[in-house]
Design a protein around this nucleic acid. Structure first.
Lengths: 343, 343
DNA sequence: AGTCAAAATCAAAGCGCTTTGGAAGAAGCC
DNA sequence: GGCTTCTTCCAAAGCGCTTTGATTTTGACT
């Protein structure tokens, strides 16, 4: 059933039927009800492509998921983020289109999404330091929201980010206050902006107490369980091993825990661990009691907020860039304790 | 730049330009090249909504992700599956649209996707036993592929599934051969078809050796780390505790490992663990050496294959239902060993 | 030069909707 | 009754593409 048939059926013009369905005021309430009833009865719902063509709006947002050609890694936070954003879109009648894309094709994909008119706006995932996508998108002229920020990009744009620097600075302070002096940082890839900021927060806190960051205690890589395991195992073999680990992801933290337990040490007593916790639905940090002491900030929630921001930007492109900085909360669990007395 | 402008620019009709761009044979090679060059130069790419309206095809597939209203859990395998399918779509010029949906709205969403013509086909995720979606989709009349199967549904439909029964049966046999007699099953929610089949495989193998499955050793729930931890912790407190654990997901298995280590037992010696491993990109089961002995089958790969099946079905809806049953491979890691001598 | 089929191009209709610019009818006012 | 002003509805244009059916060009063959 399409508009033409429906209106013929009702003995009304397409105009009137269209207006009745879309809630325009210039149609009598009685007719509107009649139209609505008929639409329901015949299970009519407007062809979205025709509608979009006529209105010039796609009623869709794009999420481009870059797949680093090297490691083929799908970002573990992606599912939850998208779920959050999806909720918002669904409420507002937007579709979400997903593109899985090789790093090197990314620019082409953005241009294409624009030129083809597939989406009205998009969300940029996983910003790197000096990320070129931001200037590209501005130049393409499509509304976008960055999940994270890109250090080194001067121009202003809309973003939503966790305050990674402060989160890691506070976590470091927390460990320092417990007496730890050898604190390891098991970080994500430092080309990623979030990882860069985390390290910065960590180093600042150390330096504030005149501790020189030790390169031996800092690692940076894709955040897998095995990476966490190996890093901790190697560091524990060090002549002057760390007493605490600051870890960028709960997945990694599981690996660190494995190494620590394998070495026969007790977490929270011999070794302390703090992790960043994105509150992934499938990887909760315990249920009532947190497993790890953690800097916590929900990615799902970030998705929701970013989705809302994007829709606002689409409705009103003149709007000033929106910037949201979320503070992570430090949840104390059982994985941290006073630094063991040395020697 | 649109078709009209481009063709005016070239001094050709829209027809010719359209045909040149779409590779129809009735246009001279020389003109085609001229058109292609101009299109490139002016950065022309056809408006996708107009194109879709004209052709009546959406050139898009739908993935509906149900969010159980109760636990708000995003399936951990979803990201990798979608990445696999997305690769295939991208190659064929399809978009992928994602809907995040409450369980109870799901039927409405399917109907809507159809009525609005948003997608040409879709993939059904997370089939349950007696899943009603299958008959609904058949009735709606839209091509679809199920990732998994739905026991209890008699009608035939296209699916791609891992042979969960055989995987768990073989894993159980493996443990039995090592002398284990008390084997625990830490399963997913048994309303889910995959979990049902896994249990079935497990029970069959036990029964084949005249071991009666012990309800005390079987758990079924959302597969989180904490669930794995608690289940193992509780079972270890049992008067006659299991010597081996068969676990439905690597996330759970991490939890089981935590409980075992916390209890001061050694994995692979005191306690054996076998897990199902979906080869999630962010949760690899070790790198060269597997951490866990595991039944392995790549979800990413399943996504690719399911995507391909769906596209075939869309191209050729008359096609008989396609069914693909993948066999998991049993990878021996260090988490299994002979059953400890009792007493 | 004349004929005819094949090759190359075109004009226009159509996809299903929105929206502009009226027109018809009702209502209010003198 | 005649005029204006709302209210309610409509015809038709347009969104940017594909595709049908017709027309022109080309080239081969008498």
């Amino acid at each position: 059933m399409n508009l033409k048939e429906l209106s013929k059926h009702l003995g009304l013009s397409q105009t009137t039927v269209s207006r009745a369905l879309n809630g325009f005021p210039e149609v009598k309430e009685a007719t509107r009800l009649r139209v609505l009833a008929a639409a329901k009865k015949h299970n009519y719902s407007p062809n979205i492509r025709a509608k979009n063509l006529a209105t010039g709006r796609a009623m869709a947002t794009g999420h481009v998921i870059p797949l680093s050609s090297k490691h083929e890694m799908v970002n573990p936070i992606f599912g939850d983020f998208v779920a959050g954003a999806g909720e918002v879109y669904a409420r507002s009648g937007y579709e979400m289109v997903l593109s899985i894309v090789n790093d090197r094709d990314e620019a082409a994909v953005y241009k294409d999404l624009r030129a083809k008119g597939t989406v009205d706006g998009l969300i940029v995932h996983g910003p790197k330091i000096n990320d070129t996508r931001i200037d590209l998108l501005r130049q393409i002229g499509i509304p976008f929201v960055v999940h994270g920020r890109a250090s080194g990009i001067a121009s202003s744009y809309s973003w939503l980010d966790v305050n990674n620097r402060s989160a890691f600075s506070r976590a470091t302070d927390f460990l320092l206050d417990l007496g730890h002096r050898r604190i390891a940082l098991i970080n994500g890839l430092e080309a990623m902006d979030f990882a860069y900021r985390r390290r910065d927060g960590y180093e600042r806190s150390l330096q504030a107490r005149d501790i020189k960051p030790d390169p031996e205690l800092m690692r940076s890589d894709e955040m897998t369980e095995v990476y966490g395991y190996r890093s901790a195992r190697d560091m524990m073999a060090h002549s002057n091993p760390p007493t605490a680990y600051l870890v960028s992801s709960i997945i990694c933290a599981f690996g660190v825990r494995r190494a620590v337990e394998e070495a026969g040490m007790r977490i929270g007593r011999d070794i302390s661990i703090i992790t960043f916790d994105d509150e992934l639905s499938y990887l909760k940090n315990g249920e009532d009691v947190p497993i790890f002491t953690a800097a916590r900030s929900s990615v799902r929630d970030a998705g929701r907020q970013a989705g809302e921001m994007l829709l606002q930007l689409i409705e009103n492109p003149e709007k000033m860039p929106i910037n949201v900085l979320l503070e992570a909360e430090l949840m104390v669990g059982t994985s941290t304790g006073p630094a063991p007395k040395s020697g």
